[in-house]
């Protein structure tokens, strides 16, 4: 499964677990309008750390906070390089 697929699956799973309605994901979607709250994002980031072995938010290098879903995917894709 690609990084993007894993991220999308995780968004859907966490939204379901948290009882939140996720809007259709696309790269220009602002994360704040995705239907998820900060706890949901925190769970997504921790779940991805376990499944992908990547934690770009805790990396020592400077990280811009992602604003859109596309930024979020790109952050993980570039952390994997």
């Amino acid at each position: 499964m690609s990084i993007r697929d894993t991220i999308e699956t995780t968004f859907h799973q966490v939204a379901k677990d948290q009882g939140r309605t996720l809007v259709a994901l696309n790269d220009s979607l602002p994360l704040t309008q995705s239907g998820l709250d900060s706890l949901s994002f925190a769970i997504i980031v921790t779940t991805l750390e376990d499944s992908l072995g990547l934690d770009p938010f805790s990396a020592a290098e400077w990280v811009e906070f992602p604003v859109t879903f596309g930024d979020f995917v790109k952050l993980y894709e570039s952390a994997n390089k």
Binding site: S38, L39, F41, A42, V45, T46, D55, F57, S58
Partner: peptide, 9 residues
């Protein structure tokens, strides 16, 4: 468990 978003989970 440390979380970079909300401090801990």
């Amino acid at each position: 468990r440390k979380s970079p978003i909300v401090g801990a989970l």
